[in-house]
Design a protein around this nucleic acid. Structure first.
Lengths: 275, 275
DNA sequence: CCCAGTACTTCCACTGGACGGAAGCGCATG
DNA sequence: CATGCGCTTCCGTCCAGTGGAAGTACTGGG
């Protein structure tokens, strides 16, 4: 009875052995943690989660999770299914697709990507540089294209993908510096992970205006990627075509990727610098 | 000095003349209101907003808005530009595209939509029924297609669009009942707004398995739309082709739309019910 | 049939984080 | 130099959010 009985929230850590590490996240941060719980597991598509699973992943007490999830549901950011599982809601999609960068680029680029798809009949990718990753904004594939891990919204490494290498090639030097400072994952025997070797490739890409990758991320697939520039001449995105690996590079395909990238660049207001 | 000096938040409305109508929204609701501020203005793409504009649209005090917007920015849901304007952030896009309904349908349908685009060279739409609207999940257009208001993420009325009418035709009767109970907007002289006339059209669509619209939403454009069914036989989406209005209906185009819809349905696991 | 286990929902007393008015700051404009 | 506008920061107040605990609803094993 004497003294503070439980001492919640404010924990003067040190007084009693098991300092409960108070959660000082704001309400907003907790709400976001709930959303992150759905995105979290990289490749695996954990489309639906139970309340308990959300609570665990977000690191929140069950009752708090219950209340906050209810808020998300009432807005439409999450939706509750008959079986009691939750998934991301349509409202989130609706708001998400309004995001300017993605929407504008996609809208402008799509017709050119379609043309590229039509002439090549292979996977066509559109990606931008976001942090240390290539973020896939769009992906077109036919019925029978090679199986790939990429998908819209995916993040893949810069050094092992065609679009990634292009984006890195035209990125500010400090970004390149920082990226190469960390150890790069080797996915397949042919993945180039040695910093100096990567630098050499980047220089080559800048020279040729195209990146050629083969068997560096997914076995059996190769890619060709080219840079997309905006009005200011800055590289803002990259297009690529991913094909089943063959012995020779198809020069027509290379030309098609170049044309698509140039088409989008022109549509973005880029005029080839004279020199 | 006597009595309560200001009486914030809790306001016993009625005591003093100007009852300030307390804002009893939760933190979550306020955060959502901020996002809604960006989506709000229907057609107009209010891509970026100033802090003050957000505060106004969300109906929040400036200082509160300032704090909450900062939370969004730190998570990545909003991003702040050099000029001080805010826009929806990439994180929101990233989370949004993970939404199961949209992602699954899109992924499966896209190859068929591409085929349809290729054979027709016209706008191709994929939409689902959401509330009282047709929600556009995907849109493919060539370089020179007719100018339209539809776009990915857009909501358009059910009675004046091809996809909308198809979705309505196969919707539960109570949805139809409720939809037709309200007065339908006439966009062009040819828009059918009379409930009984609409019902007749819906019956016709169910009979033919295709909807034909002409000059009912956008001047100069017509559309052909067909239903997409899932494994259970339920209509879950609709595809359409929108063309410049011509005198006659192209039977090949009609066939192409039907084929695309059937292709997607089959890919979703639908097997034609034997009579 | 009962009881234990698991998962979700509701309740409610406590309190610290959210609130927002106000003051401060930075910048353009007259 | 004054004025106004929009953004940022500050800080005392107080109630919304919190989360432990109890309640409910299934499920499945003995």
């Amino acid at each position: 009875m004497s003294g503070k009985p439980v001492q919640k929230r404010t924990n003067d850590d040190g007084v009693d052995g098991h300092s409960a590490a108070v959660d000082d996240r704001s309400v907003a941060a907790r709400l976001f943690a709930i959303l992150d719980a759905f995105a979290a597991p990289a490749g695996a598509t954990s489309l639906t989660l139970t309340l308990t699973a959300i609570a665990q992943r977000a690191g929140l007490p069950l009752s708090t999770t219950h209340r906050l999830v209810a808020e998300w549901v009432s807005w439409g950011g999450l939706s509750k299914h008959e079986n009691g599982q939750y998934s991301l809601g349509m409202k989130l999609w609706e708001v998400g697709v309004q995001t300017p960068t993605a929407r504008n680029l996609r809208t402008i680029a799509l017709p050119y990507l379609e043309d590229l798809y039509e002439t090549t009949r292979e996977h066509v990718h559109l990606a931008i540089l976001d942090g240390r990753d290539a973020l896939y904004l769009e992906k077109l594939s036919g019925h029978h294209a090679v199986r790939l891990i990429s998908r819209v919204g995916a993040r893949l490494p810069l050094h092992s993908t065609g679009v990634g290498l292009v984006l890195l090639a035209y990125a500010p030097t400090d970004v390149v510096q920082e990226y190469l400072a960390t150890s790069l994952q080797r996915f397949l025997p042919r993945t180039v992970t040695e910093p100096e070797a990567v630098r050499k490739r980047l220089a080559e890409i800048r020279l040729l205006g195209i990146a050629r990758m083969s068997e560096e991320m997914t076995a059996g697939s190769s890619s060709l990627a080219a840079p997309i520039r905006d009005r200011t001449g800055q590289v803002v995105a990259a297009v690529s075509v991913v094909t089943r690996t063959t012995d020779t590079v198809d020069p027509e395909q290379e030309q098609a990727v170049r044309l698509a990238a140039q088409g989008v660049s022109r549509a973005l207001g880029y005029r080839r610098a004279q020199q």
